[in-house]
Design a protein around this nucleic acid. Structure first.
Lengths: 110, 110
DNA sequence: ATAGTTCATCGCAAATATACGATTAATATT
DNA sequence: AATATTAATCGTATATTTGCGATGAACTAT
């Protein structure tokens, strides 16, 4: 067969949405975001206190959320204050809205 | 430190949302869902024709979407017709809506 | 019965993700 | 300068994901 060298060109939207979805694809990160939303912001240490995970592990999850663009950190020595990244959050919201806007309910098929 | 044996109890919501998000966290699967929504339904073979990936790979992605509950397959020998799973799709939509409903725009912090 | 079609599954390799403890970097405090 | 605090990063181990080709199962058509 050998159909491919697997270099697929995805749309920017697909890539961006997949990136957000992937970042949201772990329960710990959802808990972190929830915590962040409750407090509006919080320090890494707060999360370390709350979650039964090593500090390094939490830091890593924060990094993934940050890399995906969903949160941002403000240095506030010696702590770091994390918050939702407004713009990206809005962008993610829109992308998911668009994805789910397809109202499959109308087209009955199976 | 040894803070944990890492048995965290997540809420059902977190687990379910994470499961959906994870399934959506790969561009190929988004393309598949888009294709599915365009045609309302389609056969595995259609996707194999469209995507530059091996049949087995596509089958695997379909399995993941099915395991997450986002799609369902109707046997239509010798083919299988895949469609969006209405209920789960709606449930996912709601969970994401709830997640993004938090209007962080109001609470300025950083 | 035999051969053909369609798609899932197996077995494998490579890459990525997840967790940890230990270390390092940055800054504040003494 | 020396110490303490906070959090990122490094190194490592294990598990999961992603991809492939090959094989197998289910059903059709000859």
């Amino acid at each position: 067969m050998n159909k491919t060298l697997q270099h697929i060109e995805y749309s920017e939207e697909s890539k961006e949405l997949a990136r957000y979805a992937k970042a949201l694809g772990h329960p710990v990160r959802l808990v972190i975001l929830k915590h962040l939303s409750n407090q509006s912001c919080c320090y890494t240490g707060d999360l370390v206190d709350v979650l039964p995970l090593a500090q390094s592990t939490i830091s890593q999850h924060l990094k993934e959320l940050k890399d995906a663009g969903l949160i941002e950190g403000e240095v506030n020595p010696p702590k770091i204050r994390y918050c939702i990244h407004q713009e990206s959050w809005q962008k993610a919201k829109e992308l998911f809205d668009t994805l789910f806007k397809q109202d499959f309910g109308g087209i009955q098929c199976c």
